[in-house]
């Protein structure tokens, strides 16, 4: 065998070369659109078009019975809305409801996670009990709580009666309506906060704890130095999610109080529904909806931008 010197470079005339037949190339280009297309088209039809239509609707006076037979009224719906206290009351109720629900749900949920992150006998069953409310359907939740809160026969009045408090109309007294609704909501959504924070807590490497323990740090210092920095991003995300979900929460409020008593829990989403299906004014409902959309859009965009920034920081 002779030793070859460097292997000679190609020397074939390019004219001889033909493209091999293939159907592959064209598919390569269009196939992503075939996969994503159905979902995108679907969302355009059932989400984007309704949003656009809703905005159109908000410039009309449209009765519920004839949804496509509205008459244009220009900005009338909006000017009327913005000049009545009812709208600001509704906005205020939304903000109050959201703030209270988020604060209590996150505080209790995170606290529960910290408690459950420690080993003790029966932890599994305790965690299961605390988690369960999240899986209870909203309608069932409303049924239970409306019975618990019942003015004449509810168990809550029986309990407070022991402390000498008379019967209260938890769901019919404007003093308590919001509190009752918030309590029910916190009961239902707190487990999610707990589970997410718990998962984050369990991902803290135990070496970190050992290191701080060797430095002689107490429980509070450990929490500040190790635990909190680790779970803070999770808590932030879950707080934002809770905020977005609270702004849009309808069922618990509608089923428990229907927006009352005396409009004290008449949040924007409930307000939309009442305008549309009780007052049968689709146009005015759409106008409230559009304003509510702006509110959730602002929160969403803020959230999206924060996520982008965090992602950029991580990269």
């Amino acid at each position: 065998m002779t030793l070859r010197t460097s292997i000679s470079p190609p020397a074939v005339a390019p004219t001889q070369i033909q493209d091999a037949p293939s159907r592959h190339h064209m598919w390569q280009r269009i196939s992503p659109y075939i996969y994503i297309g159905p979902a995108v088209i679907y969302l355009i039809i059932f989400m984007i078009i309704p949003v656009v239509q809703g905005i159109q609707l908000s410039f009309t006076k449209t009765p519920l019975v004839r949804p496509d037979g509205g008459t244009g009224v220009g900005l009338d719906n909006y000017t009327r809305l913005l000049s009545t206290p009812q709208f600001y009351n509704s906005l205020g109720a939304t903000i109050l409801y959201t703030a209270a629900t988020v604060i209590f749900a996150v505080a209790i949920g995170a606290g529960a996670a910290l408690l459950l992150n420690q080993a003790f006998k029966g932890r599994t069953i305790v965690r299961a009990i605390i988690t369960l409310p999240w899986a209870v359907p909203t309608v069932a939740t409303a049924l239970i709580f409306s019975w618990i809160f019942n003015r004449s026969d509810g168990v809550l009045n029986e309990v407070v009666g022991v402390f000498g408090v008379g019967q209260q109309g938890w769901l019919v007294d404007p003093k308590y309506g919001m509190a009752a609704v918030v309590l029910t909501s916190v009961w239902k959504v707190m487990p999610l906060v707990m589970l997410v924070v718990l998962a984050s807590l369990q991902s803290i490497p135990s070496e970190l704890y050992e290191a701080t323990r060797m430095d002689g740090a107490g429980a509070l210092e450990t929490f500040k130095a190790v635990t909190w920095p680790h779970i803070a991003p999770t808590v932030r995300v879950v707080t934002l999610l809770m905020t977005i979900w609270s702004i849009r929460r309808f069922e618990i409020i509608y089923l428990l109080t229907g927006g009352g008593p005396v409009d004290s829990t008449n949040t924007l989403v409930v307000n939309v529904y009442r305008q549309a299906f009780s007052n049968q004014e689709l146009g005015r409902a759409a106008a409230i909806g559009a304003l509510g959309l702006v509110l959730s859009l602002v929160v969403t965009v803020v959230y999206f931008m924060m996520e982008r920034r965090n992602a950029a920081k991580e990269a």
Binding site: A39, L43, P50, V269, V272
Partner: peptide
């Protein structure tokens, strides 16, 4: 854009869309 559409729509409140979806479905 597709990702944003999928992201943003999950934030849309059901109750705010129920009116236009109702109108759409009625027609």
């Amino acid at each position: 854009a597709a990702g944003f559409l999928l992201f943003a729509t999950q934030m849309l409140p059901e109750a705010l869309l129920v009116v236009p979806i109702y109108a759409l479905f009625a027609s």
